Simulated scan of single mutants.
Amino acid sequence: MKKLIFLLSAVLFFTACSEDDASVIDQPTDTVEDLARRGCATDEVFKEQLAADPSLAARMQQIDEFANNFDLSEARLVNGQIVIPVVVNVLYRTTAENISVTQIQSQIDVLNKDFNAQNSDFSSVPTIFSGVKANVGIRFELDQVRRKYVNRTSWGTTDLMKKSTGLTPLTPTTKLNLWVCTIGNGILGYAQFPGGSSSTDGVVVDSKYLGTTGTATYPFNLGRTATHEVGHWLNLRHIWGDATCGTDLVADTPTHNTANYGVPTYPHYSTCSGSPVEMTMNYMDYTDDRGMNMFTNGQKTRMLSLFAAGGARYSFAQ
């Protein structure tokens, strides 16, 4: 079991261009090589936000302490579930990027299956982890789709898609905003942890990795990029803690030495102390979509703590 501690390492500040800066250069689009490995920029964006806003570290520590002390019986559930409306903001330059409602709905369907243990591969969770695999009990409903044509080949990770250059978030204290656009640089998606500014709150997923139809591209064509990023939005860290043998602040996930890619052969042993079998099938690892199928009870408790009185996303539970 991993000790629940809050670790913040020193970070470097990278100046982000403003939305009106004409010198902003589009990021390179993905190559064939980029598609071979999952890329999530959540931790990098988080570190930049910490550098830009020193008070964020204290807010995050409070959120983590709240989660650590949370009793699952305190969760505000309606008919056993939290219901989250989703606003999908589509930014497109090409017809392909202007993804269909069918593709968007396929992603909502995946989220509902993955967060409610209704995914067909949930039964594939190895026996060693069967005692901790979780039905989180969060339901997602498509609230509306907003679209905007933009003459931009890619957006990078500077949150410009969330400003007037793209589409500003709609009611972010009661709705999950999901931006769909071309990110570039091999990044499939990223999210903002709770505690950050509401003006940038939400999840970003590249249009090539959203849902299960249309432009969804193998090996990330089963909607698990959004599952992974929504996990971050609900305060889950990468399972390896973004450090060698780091902590994800969850007690019932094994210590991973680093990220895993592809679909590792089970059992895959960690090189960390005790050589535990790694939970490579956890949604918060970097494996291919077909290799992911579970959250844990500890992750469930951490996520649902956000919706309790005093939790960082309590406004969603009202």
Results as ranks from 00 to 15, higher is better:
Met1Phe: 10
Lys3Trp: 09
Leu7Trp: 14
Asp20Tyr: 10
Asp20Gln: 10
Thr29Asn: 04
Asp30Trp: 04
Val32His: 11
Glu44Tyr: 09
Gln49Trp: 12
Asp53Asn: 12
Asp53Gln: 11
Gln62Ala: 15
Asp64Gly: 11
Asn68Asp: 08
Leu72Tyr: 05
Ser73Val: 09
Val78Asn: 13
Thr94Asp: 01
Val110Pro: 03
Leu111Thr: 05
Lys113Tyr: 12
Asp114Leu: 05
Ser120Pro: 03
Ile128Trp: 05
Ser130Ile: 00
Val132Thr: 06
Val132Trp: 04
Leu142Gly: 05
Thr153His: 06
Thr158Phe: 14
Leu160Phe: 15
Met161Asn: 15
Lys162Ala: 07
Leu170Ser: 14
Thr171Phe: 14
Thr174Gln: 11
Leu176Thr: 12
Tyr190Leu: 11
Ser198His: 15
Asp206Ala: 12
Lys208Thr: 00
Tyr218Thr: 08
Pro219Lys: 08
Leu222Lys: 08
Arg237Thr: 12
Thr247Glu: 02
Val250Gly: 06
Ala259Trp: 11
Asn260Leu: 15
Val263Arg: 05
Pro264Trp: 06
His268Gln: 15
His268Leu: 13
Met279Lys: 07
Asp285His: 04
Asp289Trp: 03
Gly291Thr: 02
Asn297Cys: 08
Gly298Asp: 01
Gln299Asn: 04
Lys300His: 03
Met303Lys: 00
Gln318Ile: 10
